[in-house]
Design a binder for these strands. Structure first.
Lengths: 234, 234
DNA sequence: AGCTTGACTTAGACAAGTCTAACTTTATAT
DNA sequence: ATATAAAGTTAGACTTGTCTAAGTCAAGCT
């Protein structure tokens, strides 16, 4: 069996061909071009590449059909797409269109193993009896998340005097302090109090206490600055 | 503010530079090359591109540093990486290394909105009181999923006489029959009984009953063939 | 039958990203 | 101080995937 890896661009062509054939029996270059929003010369080029890999039957000026191998590969891609689309729509509550868009991108990087785990997770969340609470929560809360290009920065970038809330902390790195022990957790509000000009140390205030940490460690704490404060300084 | 979109390749360089600077203060071409497993000329080339976009300070033969904008963008990328890595490791139960690998790919396609929803989902699953059952299930079941390039095909490809189990069905397409009504659900075992040579119809057996469907609809049913059966035929 | 039109392909330019080979710069070591 | 080594850059080839421009093919019309 020949090499089955093709570029994500060719995967897109193959997928489009499969979908067109499904609804129209034959796939014409023009339709493929419209579906993928590329020019027809690009399609011709891609068709030659697919034919060279034995995935389609292609004679110039005739509509293409999929070989058995091509159909199988196209199906695998379409299945990945479908699985991810369902996950994004049903679990993450994206709109149908958003889910489809995002699935288009993930279908090229998803491997079988990961796919199966997404399926299992989605299945469990949707069907387990003890997940009614979670389902209700996801239904109500997720659609409210808008995430308009939020200005999350790492703590070491927070300007002097500015306040911010802690968004997340990478604790899994070796040699990093346990920040949680210092009262630094998701949601904490902190203020940048000082930066040593050359040194590696920064000083922050959390609630009523103060603490110092290495700048290097601060780069692993992500915060979202609160607006309208303080004297911007570098 | 200038255009902030850069290619995923440049994102990789920027991320690598940020990580090296974090542990070594200065990023040298050679280290970047080693980290990304590319040649040093490729690094030089990328550095020029990043400098042209105002993301790094770069003088030939001197170690690079990040501009403020560069640091901010690098942090956004690293945060996406970290979020996805946590999701894959903690929820989907991939190994640390697998989670990291997969995060490397997803970090380039994840937008803020989707990121926030992944965070919310992971947070809910890990911390809600009513999710202990789900957590236990994920802990025990997901690691057993191996998905060794499973031979999932669409039903219309199943050879005559062969049996298969239903893996999933796309019901959300317009004009598609409600297969569930016919006893066709996830896990059903079916057998291909006949294909009309030209026509669009195929005939299958599910449990003790038989049903026909259009080949076009069969392409939206994914099955996993059972081994060692029947007479292979086209 | 020949003309016209639309579909498709070929040819060739361009951009991004990679590489090897050859060169330059900087640092090190007597 | 100069030779040598290491690091980094430039030059140029190659690949993939895109495009426009210019052709070719095939079908339908009169």
């Amino acid at each position: 069996m020949r090499n089955l890896k093709i570029s994500s661009s060719l995967e897109d062509y193959l997928e489009a061909i499969a979908e067109i054939i499904e609804s129209e029996k034959h796939a014409h270059s023009k339709e493929i071009a419209e579906k993928l929003k590329v020019s027809t010369p690009s399609v011709s080029h891609a068709l030659q590449a697919l034919a060279a890999r034995g995935l389609i039957r292609y004679q110039p000026h005739a509509p293409v059909t999929l070989t058995r191998r091509g159909k199988k590969l196209a199906d695998a891609i379409r299945h990945r797409h479908q699985v991810m689309k369902c996950f994004f729509a049903n679990i993450l509550k994206l709109s149908d269109e958003e889910a489809d868009d995002f699935a288009c991108k993930t279908e090229h990087i998803l491997t079988e193993k990961y796919k199966d785990r997404f399926v299992a997770l989605a299945d469990a969340i949707e069907n387990r009896e003890d997940c009614t609470g979670l389902r209700k929560y996801l239904d109500e809360y997720l659609p409210t998340i808008e995430g308009e290009d939020s200005d999350i920065i790492s703590l070491d970038l927070l300007p002097l005097g500015h306040e911010a809330t802690v968004v997340s902390i990478s604790e899994n790195l070796p040699g990093i302090k346990k920040f949680a022990d210092l009262g630094l957790v998701h949601g904490s509000i902190l203020q940048m109090e000082g930066k040593a000009p050359f040194g590696d140390l920064i000083r922050i205030r959390v609630m009523e206490s103060r603490l110092s940490m290495r700048e290097k460690d601060a780069a692993n704490i992500w915060v979202k600055p609160l607006n309208a404060n303080a004297n911007a300084a570098g």
